[in-house]
Computed example of a mutant assay.
Amino acid sequence: MGFVRNPKDVISGLLFIALAGLFAWQSRELNIGTAMRMGPGYFPLFLSILLGGLGLIVLVNGLRVPGEAPSGIVWRALILLTLSTLLFGFAMRPLGFLPALAATVFLATLASRKFNLVTALSITGVMCVFCWAVFILGLGLPIPLLGPWLGGY
């Protein structure tokens, strides 16, 4: 593999492209609709195309710009990011959108070796406001902000 200048980027790009293909394949039986009247498969397919495009950019960058080889798996990050994703899925219904999102984002910040409590709380707050503005205000999704465990519904 003499033409690979940055193995980390090449592997990441290939992983993004593979995941994009998997997600696009999973959405194949959903109705796509049109841009004006989106079906349930429109957004997943759009995100798959976007992820595949980003993967292609990262892959090409790995072939052009020198970098270092992967040194191993960062288990802490892998485990905490997986747990944060599962936490959101399991906490959304009982806690509601904002508490589940806040817990998820905060847990994801713990995956960094450069964890800082002030930065983590800032990122959590900004993400909660941003997601509330996009999904509740902007898209008008009927997602309860607080779940029944916290007196919502």
Rank of each mutant, 00 (worst) to 15 (best):
W132Q: 05
F130L: 15
L56H: 00
N116R: 15
P94Q: 06
T34Q: 05
S122L: 12
G67A: 07
W75P: 12
M92Y: 15
A35M: 07
W149V: 05
R64S: 05
L59F: 15
G53I: 01
D9N: 14
I17G: 01
M36K: 13
G151F: 03
L107F: 09
I79V: 14
P142S: 10
L51Q: 04
L146I: 02
M1S: 12
L86S: 05
P40G: 08
F115Q: 14
F106L: 15
W25E: 00
G2E: 09
N6E: 04
S48K: 02
G41F: 04
T85N: 07
S84H: 09
I73L: 14
G21E: 01
F3R: 10
L80F: 12
L54P: 00
L14I: 02
R28T: 04
L139D: 04
S12P: 00
V126P: 07
S12W: 01
M92F: 15
I49D: 01
L56Q: 00
G125W: 08
C131T: 05
W75V: 03
G2C: 00
R93T: 14
K8Q: 12
L14M: 08
L141F: 13
N31T: 10
F23T: 12
P40S: 05
G147C: 06
L86A: 14
F88Y: 13
L47H: 08
P148V: 01
V4D: 05
S122Q: 12
L63D: 07
G55R: 01
P44D: 06
L117P: 13
G2A: 10
G53T: 05
R37T: 07
L51H: 02
A91W: 07
S27C: 01
I49T: 02
V105F: 14
A77S: 14
S48I: 09
A18I: 06
G62F: 03
A103N: 11
G125N: 10
G152P: 06
L141P: 00
L98G: 09
F3S: 10
G33S: 04
A103Y: 10
L117Q: 11
S84V: 04
I17A: 05
F88A: 11
L110V: 02
K8D: 04
M127Q: 10
G2S: 12
L78M: 12
L63F: 15
L87M: 13
G21N: 01
S71H: 02
P142Q: 11
P144H: 12
P66S: 13
